[in-house]
Design a protein around this nucleic acid. Structure first.
Lengths: 238, 238
DNA sequence: CGGTTTTTTGACGCAAATCAATCACAGTGG
DNA sequence: CCACTGTGATTGATTTGCGTCAAAAAACCG
């Protein structure tokens, strides 16, 4: 039978096994229960999943796809705060602190996303210590990442930050099958909005890295040719 | 009787009532239990409470005093990440994510600090939903603050950021009895290390604000004379 | 007090933002 | 199928905010 309304209807158990997802820590029983308390949707590239100041109705679990979390600064300029991949959860900060969203979540490519009922999820988190710990771990890691970003923005120049951003993209999304193309497509402006610089500076530095054979630009795709040199350019502190 | 070894020996119940502390959410019973699982120390100004890469042995609860959490960047320059006051807890991120510290905690003034046993605390957090929620709330707020900081660093100029930092100091530590002196003493360098700029730029901007009657500099103390103008200068997005 | 640290002021140069124009392209419709 | 249009990418020219260096002044301290 063909489903028209909702062609994307995975089971949590299957999903947790296939991708190494946030919910992989749950046992079979809990996954089946979770399965009954979710609904699934597909978001097209560019679609808004949730927006700043809205109230959270549930937890979003990205089955597959790529998402950016961004906010707009004092003069309306976009700032990309987090980048999300399949298996990740989003919207959990607002849920846990009983707050409104302070980010926009926008699909970077077509993405399948499940929404877990808010009160069910909160209840589950409170009675399942493993899940509770995983949430603490998740939010702690996000805090660590954010604070690393602060140090970069404070202390590094744009060249170092652009190099660092490429390493970050690689670390988050990995390579394509060829083993050197970063597996995500961002516009130059999006890279700039993540790095905290202008689009023009980003372009100039990317083409400089291209010229010096550190990376290779193939359309919008970026290949990392010399990872070590890129690391050195990024002036990492870790 | 006079205590020589440890003159600072408060009861958690008294502390929770006096200052509005993180543990104020606990009931009497739990506070008494907590009281039995802590030890207290005084840290002199400048003393290190814990340092980067060390393993957490417990949760620090600041009874009174002021603390900076900082890390050192790629070239060894200090970056102040969080500012902490009496009633706050510190070191909880590493505890919750079972990680090493990634900050240094240093006393900005003489501070009384209690250390709660690690496994006792983790256990308490897991069986007390209220505490668990409070921890989620706490870490969520820290993440929100960090992400706001990212937006500032990315999109604001130094003037705006210095103004914002003064507002932040006021929001965190409040005023002294006179109702306009910010109740914390930081060196110009420390302000710079928080704002993400050079000491000289910080000094120049502070004296500019002083000249234009937005603030008043009295030694190291800073008075806010014109709060509205300071807010406008900070170009807040919230 | 003498010595050290912190703060302040001044001069200078550069990294990076801004402004402006062109190029490349992907859709779209006639 | 090709001109048309809009969007993103690129390159160049110009300006400037801010970091850096240097030195004086003030504050701190044993």
């Amino acid at each position: 039978m063909r489903l028209n309304q909702n062609e994307f209807l995975p089971s949590c158990a299957v999903c947790a096994k296939a991708t190494h997802s946030f919910f992989s820590i749950l046992d079979k029983e809990n996954l089946e229960e979770l399965n009954l308390n979710k609904s699934c949707t597909t978001f097209k590239k560019g679609q808004v999943i949730f927006s700043e100041n809205a109230l959270p109705l549930g937890l979003f679990c990205v089955s597959n796809g790529k998402i950016k979390l961004s906010t707009s600064g004092p003069d309306g300029k976009e700032q990309i705060l987090r980048l999300v991949k399949g298996g990740d959860i989003i919207g959990y900060r607002s849920l846990l602190s009983n707050d409104r969203y302070h980010c926009n979540a926008i699909a970077l490519e077509d993405s399948n996303i499940c929404i877990v009922d808010k009160s069910y999820f909160m209840n589950l988190a409170m009675r399942n210590n493993k899940l509770c710990f995983a949430l603490f771990k998740k939010i702690s890691d996000d805090l660590k990442t954010a604070e690393d970003h602060i140090v970069s923005l404070s202390q590094k120049n744009v060249r170092e930050r652009v190099a660092e951003a490429l390493l970050f993209l690689k670390a988050t999304y990995g390579y394509e099958k060829d083993g050197q193309t970063i597996n995500v497509q961002l516009s130059r402006e999006e890279i700039a909005d993540f790095v905290g610089t202008s689009t023009e500076s980003t372009i100039r530095l990317l083409s400089e890295f291209n010229t010096s054979k550190i990376i290779e630009l193939v359309g919008k795709k970026i290949k990392i040719i010399n990872y070590d040199k890129l690391s050195k350019t990024a002036n990492l502190s870790y």
